[in-house]
Design a protein around this nucleic acid. Structure first.
Length: 497
RNA sequence: AGGGCGUUGGGCAAGUGGUUAAGCCAAUGGAUUCUCAUUCCAUGAUCGCGGGUUCAAUUCCCGUACGCCCUCCCA
């Protein structure tokens, strides 16, 4: 016998391949992973593919690929094997069969010949008359004759679990505390579909038992499935695992995040494509419904493993806060090495058509310097394209002035500043930030303008924008030709006014 | 309709039966900087509502409102 105290923790993430890995999936996986690693236990991934109609091509692969990308590793699954396989439910049909036959033999399950249409009509009637929807139990006590009759009609039965009446179902939920249900609230549910494939509520019990799961951490939407599953564990005489139901993640409308919800970017792949870093996403997602003790917000995977404590899971729903995600990703971007940062951002520039895929060394150096200008403020990779916009606008004449820009150019010192600066720049033999910077100083001395009044007119006219990175380097990267043309254009047109 | 769960500033969220209810994001104001950004400082909640227990409740109990989830031959 294994001592309960030394029993190894075993938890699982059990996705159905009906879609790609999204935020909610990832969180469930991460929490299970953290829980297992913190306890020195095992983390298993089991594929729950019993709904063949909804399975999507590539769903399973997406789950594993992006979990890996997020930095998770697992001990047993379809790809790495393990001693409790197979880990894909459709490959376990024979196993399930043995158990549902047992229930049938014991009279704990029965055949139901109702058609989906009949059940639907029944449900609608119940709803309309204000009753609680649920299976009526019509086929609970079919006679041999009736069964023969249905069979003769060619009906194929489903198998339903016989819910015992008047039972209290109680469990201590890691997150929610003591939860109580009455078996009367649960109606006889289908455990094997017409096509012979078990339903979720049946397969999950068999698998969790056979795979020796000690804890089940899942989304709160499963809390009302728990009494069904506990009843099933009881029917087999098995010890149920310890349950923990994590709060839902909701959108800005306080609705559960669903795959079809377009108000929030859902899929991990999309975040990857937008240039979010796996460490940042991991960090952010882990803080959705869980919080550590102190005041820190930024943690590495290793720190989370050390800190993770299921007692600190929150009971109330977590809202997905996109701006916080962006902030957090920005924190990670700031910490990247220059090399990694450049390697991450340049492809976005190429994709946007701002720079060619094949570059000369000179072009590459230039693009690298441009991109590097924004490391401090970039929130996610794809945003670099917007940030460095001014380096790709070659217009000599500035049109559509904003209010701020108009105000800047209205200053009486503007022409003076720009003409002096223009003259100084033209005298330059070398076009570098180091050479340009002193020329601003010269302009300052000669015009007696400084600060805002000195820099802003130069910035607006030479760069075409009131905002941007450090002026000398910006001017260098913009290039001598463009800058001088813009100054010339401004000064000549101003004179004619 | 029934069952379950939840409710702390705009969004998260810590926390405690008892003088000033952490922190993060956002917003606003300010400092620094040529601007944006960065950095720093500042600003804001009587803890859904009502009642009860208690010397004392945001923290315990009851009720109520609101919200969400489930009630599928989905998982």
């Amino acid at each position: 016998m294994v001592n309960a105290l030394t029993e190894e923790v075993r938890v699982r993430y059990a996705p159905s391949p009906t879609g790609f890995l999204h935020i909610g999936n990832a969180r469930t996986a991460i929490f299970n992973y953290l829980f297992a690693r913190h306890a020195g236990g095992k983390f298993i991934i089991r594929i729950e593919d019993t709904d063949q109609k909804r399975n999507v091509e590539g769903g399973e692969e997406s789950q594993l690929t992006f979990l890996k990308w997020l930095g998770l590793e697992w001990d047993e699954s379809v790809d790495v094997g393990g001693e409790y396989g197979p880990y894909r439910q459709m490959e376990r049909l024979d196993i399930y069969k043995k158990y549902w036959k047992e229930l049938l033999d014991k009279g704990l399950a029965y055949k139901c010949y109702c058609t989906p249409e009949e059940l639907k009509a029944e449900r609608e009637e119940q709803m309309a008359s204000g009753h609680t929807p649920g299976y009526s139990g019509k086929c609970r006590h079919l006679s041999e004759e009736q069964i023969a009759h249905y069979e003769a009609e060619g009906r194929k039965p489903t198998l339903r679990f016989r819910i015992p009446g008047d039972q209290k179902i109680e469990f201590d939920d890691i997150v929610k505390g003591h939860v109580t249900f009455d078996s009367s609230a649960v109606s006889d549910f289908v455990i094997v579909k017409q096509n012979g494939v078990p339903t979720y509520n049946f397969a999950v019990v068999i698998d969790d038992h056979l795979m020796k799961m000690t804890h089940v951490l899942r989304g709160e939407e499963h809390i009302s499935n728990t009494p069904k599953q506990i009843l099933m564990f009881r029917a087999f005489g098995w010890e149920p695992p310890t349950f923990g139901h994590m709060t839902l993640i909701v959108n800005e409308n306080h609705k559960k995040l669903s795959k079809r919800d377009n108000s929030i970017v859902q899929f991990i792949e999309q975040y990857k494509n937008m240039g979010f870093l796996p460490e940042a996403l991991f960090n952010f997602i882990t803080l959705l419904g869980w919080s550590p003790k102190g005041e820190e917000e930024i943690f590495s995977r290793e720190e989370f493993i050390k800190l993770f404590d299921a007692d600190r899971l929150s009971k109330s729903p977590a809202m997905f806060d996109k701006s916080k995600l962006e902030w957090m990703n920005g924190q990670y971007i700031k910490k990247m090495s220059k090399e990694d940062y450049v390697q991450m951002t340049l492809p976005y520039m190429v994709n946007a058509g701002l720079i060619p895929a094949e570059m000369t060394d000179e072009q590459r150096d230039w693009a690298t310097r441009v991109v590097l200008l924004y490391q401090e403020q970039l929130h996610f990779g794809a945003d670099i394209v917007n940030l460095c916009d001014m380096f790709f606008n070659k217009d000599v004449v500035k049109t559509d002035l904003t209010k701020d820009e108009q105000k800047i150019l209205e200053g009486e010192q503007v022409k003076d500043v720009l003409s002096v600066f223009d003259r100084e720049l033209r005298a330059l033999t070398e076009w570098t930030a180091e050479a340009i910077a002193p020329k601003i100083k010269v302009t300052q001395k000669e015009t007696k303008q400084r600060g805002w009044k000195l820099y802003m007119p130069i910035r607006v006219i030479a760069t075409g924008s009131a905002h941007g990175p450090e002026l000398p380097e910006a001017l260098e990267l913009l290039g001598r030709d463009l800058v001088l043309k813009r100054l010339e254009n401004y000064l000549s047109t101003e004179q004619t006014v």
